[in-house]
Amino acid sequence: MTTSTDRVGTRRRPVQGLALFVGAVFLLVGVLGFVPGVTTALDGLRFAGPHSEALLFGLFQVSVLHNALHLLFGVAGILAASSRGASRLFLGAGGFLYLVLWVYGSVVHSIDHEGGAANFAPFNAADNLLHLGLGAGMIIAAVLATVFERARGRYPGREQRGA
């Protein structure tokens, strides 16, 4: 029989809940990228590159590769939610990657409106703003979750192993 103190050590921490939420949203978005009606011009969906005409919610340009990456990123977030360290890494590193995508997409979008070889993914203005928001939001979430844990007297990475 477990006591209430036994269960405290296995409770999901805020950072884990955030990683689970972000992972679930990415998984959902990856699936919705293939759903007619939610994704407009689905018959114009391409494997990769800027020539895909499909728009998720009529706004965000997607491709098969783009949707597959959302699915993989979603699974990674859900798996990362099993540990505090992995959750923090998922949110922090994932946020950094989205900021890199924002910079890359902004540069490619401003230089190459014709979608040349350098543009491996569909990046429109809405995608670029979303990448900026996701990157910043994920990093802020990782930092705030750590701050909240420390405010409660928990120090991530320095947990004492149970006896």
Rank of each mutant, 00 (worst) to 15 (best):
V64Q: 10
S83D: 10
D112Q: 12
V108E: 13
V31C: 01
G33M: 03
F120M: 14
S87D: 13
S82V: 04
T5V: 09
D127P: 05
V143A: 15
P50F: 08
G105L: 01
L56N: 02
R152A: 11
L134D: 10
A142G: 05
R13Q: 01
A68W: 04
A24H: 06
S63C: 12
S87C: 08
L99K: 00
G17D: 12
H113M: 05
L72I: 05
P122L: 00
L27P: 00
L69M: 11
P14Y: 03
T3W: 00
G94Y: 03
V31R: 01
G92P: 10
Q160E: 09
F96H: 04
G105A: 00
G157C: 12
V147H: 08
D112R: 14
G137W: 05
A141K: 13
A54M: 06
F148G: 02
L99Q: 03
F47N: 00
Q16E: 07
V147L: 15
R154N: 12
S52C: 03
F60P: 01
S4F: 13
P14F: 02
A125V: 15
V75K: 14
R84W: 10
G74T: 06
L20C: 12
R161D: 12
L59E: 10
L56Y: 03
V35R: 07
A125C: 08
G153N: 02
L28V: 15
H66E: 02
L97P: 08
S83M: 14
V107R: 08
A117Q: 11
G9L: 03
S4A: 11
A68P: 07
N119E: 15
R152Q: 07
V108A: 09
A68G: 12
R11L: 01
G58F: 07
E53T: 01
T3F: 04
A142L: 13
D6W: 15
L69R: 05
R88T: 15
V100L: 07
V22E: 06
A126H: 04
T40S: 10
W102Q: 00
F34E: 05
F60H: 07
G162H: 10
G116Q: 13
R154A: 07
M138F: 10
L97E: 04
G137E: 11
R161M: 05
G74P: 02
R46A: 15
R13Y: 01
S110R: 07
V147Y: 11
V31A: 07
H113I: 09
V31E: 00
V100G: 03
L91G: 00
V62M: 02
P156H: 09
A142R: 15
P50D: 08
G94M: 01
P122Q: 02
A41C: 07
V103W: 13
H70G: 01
L65E: 08
A24L: 14
P50R: 14
V15W: 05
L79P: 02
H109Y: 14
A163E: 02
G30W: 14
R152G: 06
G85N: 09
D43W: 12
V107N: 07
R161V: 15
Q16D: 02
